[in-house]
Structure formats: structure tokens, C-alpha cells
Amino acid sequence: MKGLLLKDLVNLKQQTKIYIIVIAIWLAIALTSQDGSFLGGMICVLSVMLPITTLSYDEKAKWDKYALSMPVSRKQVVVSKYILALALSFTGCLISFAFNLFITKDANQSMLMSLMFWAFSIVAFSVILPLIYKLGVEKGRAMILVVFLAPTVLVILLSKLNIPLPSKEFLYNIKFVIPVFIIAALILSCYVSIKIFTNKDL
């Protein structure tokens, strides 16, 4: 597993310079507008894109076939992607928290926003990864758009239908349920991906 993670990290290393520049630009935008939410959102999107990029590289190199001739199980191949996604999204969360704190000087609000975006990243890749394992990266990429647009569309739809959005108090009350839901989604997603990949003819 460690070898698989190293492979992905080394493969992505090439592009770190670009990410740093991009994040610096977003940080500049956030500073000028005194609003960290754009930055948080974009980091969230980036942290979901990265594991998908590694899947794309793997597909191009037909890596999976090769990896399975090594002492590596199908389960490990899948789980390593989830670990990668969690690690990258958590890193994104920390970066987002640090930048938000710097901009707003409000620790509570920064933490809440960063955690919220992290939660959203987890749900996003929990939906996307099994789709990619089933359909391949190209089709999976199309799904990303849907996954990120869906909440926005839902909110607009609800407001058009005059259904009130959950109030702050409501969200506060269910705040302990949310992590449980997210962990459940993650585990279910991983289980489904493993199932799909195990049955795939390579």
C-alpha cells in the first residue's frame, strides 16, 4: 500500500509548482475580497480533482494490469486511492483553515468553513470514485461536474419552490449526525469500489 501511495504522490509531484501558483492566486483574490469561502471552495475542488488525476494517469499507463502482477491485491489498489483522497482533502482543509484564519482572524468560523468543505470533498469523492471504477476516468470526469453542480441546483430548486432551507439551528442540532453520515458514505463507497474493481476483467 505504501508503494502505491508513493507512486501517486511522486506522479503528482511534477505538478505541485502549478498548484502552488494557482493557490497563491486564489489567496490573493480572497485577500482582496476579504472572503475566504471562494478559496475554501476551490481548494475543495482541487483536492477532489487530484486523486482523479492519478486515476487518469494510471489508466493511460495501463498501470492496474501491471500492478496486479506484483504482490498487491485489488483491494489494496482501491483502498490506496481512498487513503490518498482523504489525505489530500485533509491537507486542503488545513490549508483552507490557515488561509481563512489569516484573512478573517476568526478561528471558529474558519474551522467551521474548512470542516464543511472537507466534508463536502469526502462526499464528492465518495460518489465519484465508484463511478470512475465502473465507467472509467473520461466518463467519471463528466460526473464531477454533476456532483459539484447538484447542490447548487438543489438549493435554487428549493428556493423556487418556496421550501425553506434548513435553518442554522437545525444544522446545529444535527451537527453530530453529519460526521456519522459522512463516514458511512465513505465506507459504503469504498466497499462498492472494491466490489466493482474485484469483478472487473482488466
Binding site: 511522486v10 506522479n11 509531484k13 499507463a61 495501463k62 498501470w63 501491471y66 502482477s69
Partner: peptide, 11 residues
């Protein structure tokens, strides 16, 4: 050794 299968691009 499997024809066409290899390591990802950037390693």
C-alpha cells in the same frame, strides 16, 4: 512483462 503496461508518466 505485459505489453503496453507501465508506470505512470511522471515517474
Amino acid at each position: 512483462v505485459i505489453d503496453e503496461s507501465c508506470f505512470p508518466d511522471n515517474v
